[in-house]
Amino acid sequence: MRVSFALGLALALSALAAALVALVWTPYDTSTLAIAEKLQPPSATHWLGTDHFGRDIASLLMAGAKTSIAVALVAVGIGMGAGVPLGLFAAATRGSLADEVVMRGNDLVFAFPSLVIAILITAVFGPSATNAIIAIGIFNIPVFARVTRGGALSLWTLDFIRAAEVAGKGRVRISAEHILPNILNLLIVQGTIQFSLGILAEAGLSYVGLGAQPPTPSWGRMLAEAQTMVTIAPHVAIFPGLAIVLTVLGLNLLGDGLRDYLDPRSRRAA
């Protein structure tokens, strides 16, 4: 278990490091075209080869990490920012009409898969990375609302909440002081899951042209462009895909490891 956690941490940190370094430096400029050097296989000068415009794939992947991570991170932020308060509110007013409305609203958003939301937004506003963020973010809201409500509901039945009520504390205060700290673990774990799903979703949206637009570098779009060349230069398609798989795998392993580490049952034993 510890091995997979370390592996996850290493993979996730490498992706993050690549994205951060890409903010200031990439081995080659990703906006300059060098048609003469197009579709070169991996070599000492271009470690991962070049694409059909002769751009360095390693550099493109670093720049793409920036987009992927930014999109997924902001989308998780949107989901948490709206979903957690909604979930806390629903749990605090459990059984009431307000709870019912929040939960039915959640179900409704669930009926729109993120791709469908993206399609709707794109059809009206046109494709962009921002719209991809909004689409994924909206989809994240009910996910966090549900996790929050579920965790909070089981806490609301416990006697320490009764004790807080006897101490004159209201719902808002109890939610902030007693509920939220006790579901933080759940939220962190769910956060890593949604983060990795966000990276997959961004890649998918960009692949079909609903996400990041040129010249914003993106793993998904690199794959879309590589598709026609996959027979003559497979490396153009393989490396961006590997980048996605390894990043998502790293985040998932990290999430599992965090779950084991943060689980109070396993901690009590330690």
Binding site: L158, D159, F160, E177, H178, P181, N182
Partner: peptide
């Protein structure tokens, strides 16, 4: 004030 039955659920573990 009150004292409840369950010695485990009566306190915020954090």
């Amino acid at each position: 004030q009150v004292v409840f039955q369950d010695p485990y659920g009566s306190f915020n573990p954090r």
